[in-house]
Structures are given as C-alpha cells and as structure tokens.
C-alpha cells in the first residue's frame, strides 16, 4: 500500500513537496502569519470585542503621531539600540579576538570563554534581577563601588539620563558572549597561511587586522549585526523588570509602550498600530544593514 502511495506521490511531485511543508505551514500560518495580517487589520479599527469595533482608517496612526508619549518611546528605542548594538558587538568582537589570538596554547582559555558565554544562557528575568540589585541605589554592589570611586556619579537606575545606558550595559553583559562565540568561529575559519605569508611580507598586526581579518569576518559580523538589531528593537523584559520604563518615562521603549497600551489600557487598535510601526522599522533597518555591508547573497 505504501508502495502505491509512494508511486502516486512520485508522479505528483508538486503535491509531494507541499505535503512535507504542510505541518509547519499550518502552525506558521495560524500562529505567526495570520496574526501579523490580522494585526494590520485591527490597527485600522477602534477595536472593541465587547461593544463592537468601528472602522477608523488611519486614525490610530494619526493619533500615535500626535502623541508625545509615543514619540518618547520611539526615540528611546533608537537611543537604546544606538547604545546596546555597538556595546554588544564591540565587546563580543573584542572577546572573540582575545580568545582567538591569545587563547591558543594558553591555560584557562576554556574557563574564560565559558564565563563570558554563560550569561547568555540565563533568562531575561534573572539578568534583570541581578542588575537591578547590583545597581540598587543604597545597597547595590556596582552602584556603591562606582559612587565610592567617583563621588559625583549618578544613581544609574533612577537618573533619567542614565537608566537606558545602564540597561544597555546589562544587556551587553547578557548577550555579548553569544556574539563572541559566533565571531570566534568566523575567525577560526580564516586560513592560517594568510597570516604566515603576511608576516613574511612584513605586515604589522594592525595591517593584518585591516586587510585579512576584517574582510573575512564580514559575513559573521553581518549575521551578528542583523541578530543584534532585531533583538535591540524588541527589547522588553530588561526594561520592564529593571525600571518599568522609569524614572518617569525616561526608559520606556516601544515594546513596553505597546504592552501597556494594549494590555493595560486595552486600546487595542492603537497598540496594533504601534506594532505595525515596529514591524516596518525592523524590516527597514534589517534591509539597510544587509545593504550597507553589501552582502545580500550571503543571507541566502
């Protein structure tokens, strides 16, 4: 019977191929694709499941664009991304270079690498709890130490100018290890002979870095960059648990804004509209990232 069925499938190859995709496509359609479309639809309504919804066209978007709180969250998202992306990638790359360049044949490398990577395995709540405690205004270890060394240092989490940078740093502590591992793998792939012949030609380490390492690490860097952009723009848990967007609204980012508008104030249409804006934002930025590095083919 299976033989016959197999023969039938072999003759209808289109059908056969689709059959394998159906289980995944079903899940994906119901729980990912459909909700995205539905979200765009909802964003055009004054949505109220109980009293009935009213089509309002782009009114939700217009309302958002006139709302100071939305623009604050919008600006904070970019500020946060601007701080956390270079921090994560910079630290990750430095760690990767350090382990790759110095680590071979040195004792303790594995331990160092493990310690730098491990925070990535912790969930966002643990990370937020640890850092909120480290930065506690009265009893925090880090806050206390910094205040002792620099008496004029701010109280990070309650200072409007410093809350976001503090969260950005905590995020870098959390995520830099994963970037390190990916970039380190990229470094390992560079053929050793390149460095040997460069050294024979008298190329200094700095030149080797510019002319050998940078061009060849580019694909890994691109991947890391895209990954980091996406994660920066959807940042939610750290902010919710470390400052709740405070002090005031100084650290309120778009994801947090959306959560409160949608699930606290139940302004569903407006929250959906800000979700669509976030979606467009991420798509544009990712495309720019891919374009800038001129590596479109490498994503496929």
């Amino acid at each position: 019977m299976w033989g016959k069925f197999g023969h039938f499938l072999y003759r209808h190859r289109n059908l056969e191929g689709i059959l394998y995709v159906v289980p995944f496509l079903g899940l994906w359609g119901v729980f990912l694709a459909w909700p995205v479309g539905y979200g765009i639809y909802i964003s055009l309504f004054d949505w109220n499941p109980l009293k009935g919804s009213k089509f309002v066209g782009l009114a939700n978007y217009v309302q958002l664009f006139h709302e100071e709180r939305f623009w604050n969250a919008f600006a904070n998202t970019f500020k946060f991304a601007g701080m956390t992306i270079p921090l994560i990638i910079g630290l990750g790359f430095l760690f990767a270079l350090m382990i790759w360049g110095w680590g071979r044949s040195r004792r303790g490398t594995v331990t160092v690498q493990s310690i730098l990577f491990f925070p990535y395995l912790l969930n966002v709540s643990i990370v937020a709890i640890i850092w909120k405690w480290l930065l506690d205004r009265d009893f925090g270890l880090v806050q206390h130490t910094i205040s002792r060394i620099f008496p004029s240092a701010p109280v990070f989490l309650t200072d409007p100018a410093w809350a976001l940078p503090a969260i950005a740093f905590a995020t870098a502590w959390w995520l830099a290890g994963y970037r390190m591992v990916v970039l380190q793998a990229g470094l390992e792939e560079i053929p050793k002979e390149l460095f040997e012949s460069a050294a024979i030609d008298g190329a200094r380490p700095w030149h080797q870095f510019i002319h050998i390492i940078m061009p060849l690490i580019k694909p890994s860097l691109l991947f890391t960059l895209v990954l980091t952009i996406i994660s920066a723009f959807r940042t939610f848990g750290q902010v919710l648990m470390m400052t709740e967007g405070g002090p005031g609204r100084a650290s309120e980012v778009l994801a947090l804004y959306l959560y409160w508008v949608g699930f606290d104030y139940f302004q569903v249409g407006k929250a959906a509209a800000s979700g669509v804006i976030l979606l467009v934002l991420i798509l544009i930025l990712t495309l720019i990232g891919v374009r800038l590095l001129g590596l479109k083919s490498e994503l496929q």
Binding site: W28, V30, F31, L32, A33, W34, P35, V36, Y38, G39, I42, P49, V226, I230, F233, R234, F236, L254, A255, L258, Y259, G262, V268, A271, A272, G275, V276, L278, L279, I282, L283, T286, L299, Q300
Partner: peptide, 20 residues
C-alpha cells in the same frame, strides 16, 4: 516569505495572537 517572517518580533503579532 519565511525569510522575511523570521525577522519579526513577537510584539508585532502578540495582540491578534492573544485573541486567537
């Protein structure tokens, strides 16, 4: 299409998903 959807964060579809 899947490639594009891989980039989307939860926040984009969470409200409809909640209704579903």
């Amino acid at each position: 299409i899947l490639l594009v959807f891989m980039l989307l964060p939860w926040q984009v579809n969470v409200i409809p998903l909640f209704f579903t």
